[in-house]
Amino acid sequence: MLTPEDDTYWREYHVTPRYLAGSLGTGDDPSLRPFVDLDWPRHHLDDDLGRTVFVSPDGRLRIGFFGDDYLLWNIAAYEDPFGPRRWAATFNQNTPPEIVAAFTTALARDYEEGNNRFLARPPVRWGEQTQPLTEAGWTRDWGAEIGTVEIIAPDKQAGVLLDIRCQDPEDEQCLPWSGPPGWGTRAEATFTTRTPGHLIAATAMADPAPLVRYERSIPRGLRDLVQLTPVEPPPPAKPTPLDVRRTAVAQAVERAFRSSPTNPRAVAARARTTSPLAASDARPTALADRQVPSAASSRSSGRRL
């Protein structure tokens, strides 16, 4: 069993496909960052459980994060802050926060642009909503229930179910999912009938870019379904010609000092290459002449080297 004292405990991996990466397993959640950056009013419902609600300045967007619930994120939009919801979206606790962050980032951008695009009508044709998926190789499952359309990922471990029979604004029409069934493995989201299609597409379920995780943070039920590639540290910076020259000079001076530690020039040169204060002295050689050690001390120094 790995412990925090083991190097492999802290090893990071690129995880593909991203929709099976699971939770981050840390408190550094990017999904709420857009609203923190915009300094939207923030309400703590229960500090012990981490429940938080962000509200846009005009009250037309509300983003809830419920740290004690199956549905961690609950997002709603309103044409009138005192009227009924225009649309709502939820994401459960197994959804990678980066996928939620893609949605919330697009939502915050729509709001800031001031064109009410976050209230846009959804596409009339269901194919427009699923186009990014089909272009990435996802295909339709012709065995889906009549009145529904399901688009499945190539590995059969993710999909989007569309219920084209839905008419009521509160109906959950679009249901993305990923992972095997189970409380700890199945990621699920819901979007009601009037959720703008471009916001659903922003979740980028089919994005091939990997996500970074510690291996231990990936649920056991998903580890055999993902590809893990160690995150390699960046290569060291390539030394400049000046760096190479300085290193060579320092090595030459050190060799000269070791061969003749009582030589004033060697002592002075070593002081210039190892001490910033000595390097700035205007008369290093004269200073070294005054500090030449006695024969006895030099022999003693030679034994310590």
Rank of each mutant, 00 (worst) to 15 (best):
L2M: 12
L2F: 09
T3R: 02
P4C: 09
D7I: 02
T8H: 14
T8N: 09
Y9N: 10
W10I: 00
E12N: 04
G22K: 05
G22V: 04
G22P: 10
S23V: 11
G25Q: 14
G25H: 09
G27C: 15
D29R: 10
P30N: 15
L32D: 12
R33C: 10
R33V: 15
F35A: 05
V36Q: 09
D37E: 14
D39T: 12
H43Y: 14
V53F: 15
F54N: 13
F54C: 09
S56V: 07
P57S: 03
D58T: 07
R60L: 12
G64N: 09
F66M: 03
I75Q: 03
I75A: 07
P81T: 08
F82G: 11
A88P: 09
N94F: 00
P96A: 04
P97C: 15
I99D: 00
I99E: 10
V100M: 05
A106H: 00
R109Q: 11
R109H: 13
N116Q: 05
N116H: 06
R117D: 14
L119N: 04
A120R: 15
R121A: 13
P123W: 00
P123R: 01
V124E: 07
Q131V: 03
Q131L: 06
P132M: 09
E135Q: 10
G137H: 10
W138Q: 04
D141L: 03
D141R: 11
A144D: 11
I146D: 11
V149Q: 02
P154F: 00
K156V: 01
A158C: 01
L161I: 13
L161G: 07
L161M: 15
C166E: 10
Q167N: 09
Q167I: 05
E172K: 10
L175Q: 15
L175M: 11
P180H: 13
P181A: 10
A187E: 08
T190Q: 13
R194M: 09
R194Y: 15
G197V: 02
H198W: 02
I200K: 00
P208W: 00
A209S: 05
L211Q: 04
S217R: 13
S217Q: 14
I218P: 06
G221C: 01
T229V: 04
L242S: 06
A250T: 04
Q251H: 13
A252V: 01
V253I: 08
R255V: 15
A256C: 14
A256P: 01
F257G: 10
S260M: 13
T262H: 14
V267H: 14
A269F: 10
R270P: 05
T274P: 11
S275I: 00
S275Y: 01
D281E: 13
D281N: 09
T285Q: 08
A286P: 11
A288L: 03
Q291S: 06
S294Q: 08
A295C: 07
A296S: 01
R299T: 08
R299Q: 14
S300N: 12
G302C: 06
G302R: 12
R304A: 11
R304Y: 15
